Simulated assay, not measured.
Amino acid sequence: MKPLRAATYGVFYRLPIGLRRWIVRRAVPKYVVGAVIMVRDSEAGGERLLLLRQPPPGRGWNLPAGLLQRRESPIVGAARELAEETGIRLRPEELSPAVPNAVVHARGWVDVVFEASVPASTTTLTVDGAEVYEAAWHPLDDLPKLTKASAKLLAYYGIGPLADQPGPWASLRR
């Protein structure tokens, strides 16, 4: 380690914790954190996925998702967003972390991704007509036009039109 860098770290770690946090918050990149939920139809062996059609600019279908509130844990935010956008009310413990659980995007946001499975035939979908126009189940092998963000995110899980294309997700599947 170079002497200047070692000295800088030495001084930094001697500072009070509050001051260290203040410095870190101003020095490191800021990210927006969202929660995304991949909801599968348990009656179709998980081969159908719940997607949402939302207002432009997306002009395609999305996964249920939204930004976390201040100090909200990702799993609680995921359950909240799922209920708000689809009417599906699940307890946080009914969600499972997807693998990978967090996807860091180049433009400054992080998606924390969860999975859930519900029976489509007995699950009532409720949308507000403003934030979400439509919610529907789609077979994994016949997905509608996805937004670019959803297509890229689903590719990390080997799903959708980009799943077989090169990208940062390709190294995660073997």
Rank of each mutant, 00 (worst) to 15 (best):
R5Y: 10
Y9Q: 04
Y13H: 15
R14P: 01
L15E: 10
P16G: 08
L19T: 06
L19Y: 13
L19H: 10
R21E: 01
R21G: 05
W22D: 10
R25K: 15
R26A: 09
A27Y: 02
A27F: 06
Y31V: 11
V33Q: 08
V33C: 01
G34V: 09
A35E: 08
V36R: 03
V36G: 03
I37T: 09
I37G: 02
M38L: 11
M38V: 12
M38W: 08
E43Y: 12
A44Q: 15
R48I: 05
R48L: 07
L51V: 07
Q54V: 12
P55I: 03
P56S: 07
R59L: 03
G60I: 07
N62M: 14
N62C: 08
L63H: 06
L63D: 04
G66N: 04
R70C: 09
R70F: 11
R71K: 12
R71F: 10
S73A: 11
P74K: 08
V76G: 06
R80T: 08
R80I: 05
L82K: 11
A83I: 08
E84S: 13
G87C: 01
I88G: 02
R89S: 08
L90G: 07
R91I: 00
A98H: 10
A98I: 02
A102P: 00
A102E: 08
V104Y: 09
V104R: 14
V104C: 04
H105D: 13
A106N: 13
G108L: 14
G108M: 09
V110G: 02
D111V: 02
D111K: 00
F114N: 13
P119K: 14
T122C: 11
T123Y: 04
T124V: 09
L125R: 02
L125W: 02
D128N: 05
Y133A: 02
E134Q: 13
E134W: 04
